[in-house]
Each structure stands twice: as C-alpha cells, then as structure tokens.
Amino acid sequence: MPDLKDLLLIEGLGRRDKVVFDFIFNYYYSSLCAFSMQYLKDRNAAEDLVQDFFVSLWLEASGLQIRSSIKSYLFTGVKNRCLDLKKHQKITEKYRTYILFSSDSDSNSVDQYFAESELRNAVQKSLEKFPPRCREIFELSRLGGLSNQEISDKLGISKRTVELQISNSLKILRKELIEYLPLLLILWLFK
C-alpha cells in the first residue's frame, strides 16, 4: 500500500506535475541504474533502459495505477523491462533458473531496495562507528582497491593487523547494516 507521501507523489504524477516527476527521477535514478546494471551488465544499456522507463512513466502518467509503494513500482517496472530485454536477447539456461528461483521472493524483496541517498546514509552512519584506524584500513581496502599487502606497506603495520582490522570492520558493518541488507539481494543472486 502506498503511504501518504507516496499518494501525494502519485497524485502529482497523475497531474503530470513536472516538479514531482523531477523529484522522483532525481531520488531514484542512480539506484535504478545500478539495479538495472545487475541484469544488463552494461552501463549505457542500463541508463537507456531507466530513461525509457521514465519517459513512458510520464506519457502514461494520467492513467497510472499504483497500488504498491512508488519505490516498489519503479524497481518492479525496471526489472520487468530488463527481463523483457534479456528475453529478446535469448536468455541462457542459467538465467531462466534465476527467474524461477527469485519469483517467490519477489513481491516483498523489491520493497527492500533503497535510493542512493538512503544507502549512503546507512553506510555513513555505520562507518562513523568504526575506530578511525579501522575505518581507514577498510576504506583503503574496499574503496581504494588496495591489497592487504599494499595497505600494510603503506601504513607500516603488519599484514596480520590489516587482516584483523578488516574482519572487525566487516563484523561491525554487518551488524550495523542488518536492516538494509535485503537491498543487496540481487547482487548475490548474480554472483
């Protein structure tokens, strides 16, 4: 069920209010692209698909029927388009297995996706709870793409310490992010 804020947005879309449209676009665009990229594995294709989706959302806005949340409507819509596109491209056996596998968890899983700003807040909040050194090491490893050996050389500490700090960070992050984690569902399904 859409909540009050969603109802206002849906109503705005129905009136073809460009300001409402822009707001929804800016809020969800990047996360929808990242989501669609998981299916299409191609940045441009992912962006094109999401843009097409928004164009048709606007064109069909007056007859729009949204009974779920906006978020879930957008993610489901993009996902269906991705799957359609993949079908056109002759999907592989492995892929078909995935669709079968995921269909039962679909209805609730899509609601668990987040906009970029929401994920950013959650990650940021977790990182703040790290001891400073721990955070530095974890960021070098995950964002900087440095190997444990490189971090150990750079900071002048033993490789063992680096490993321990990273595993501590992961432990904290897992506990802090626990309610946001379903968001990443799609990522591991494709591993």
Partner: peptide, 15 residues
C-alpha cells in the same frame, strides 16, 4: 549478511 555488507560500499560507489 557478510557478503551483502561487503558489497554495500561498492554498490554505493556504483550508484
């Protein structure tokens, strides 16, 4: 859960 936490920052970077 660990896997997803592990990927969270990368996903954010991707977005």
């Amino acid at each position: 859960e660990s896997l997803k936490a592990w990927e969270a920052m990368i996903l954010l970077q991707e977005m």
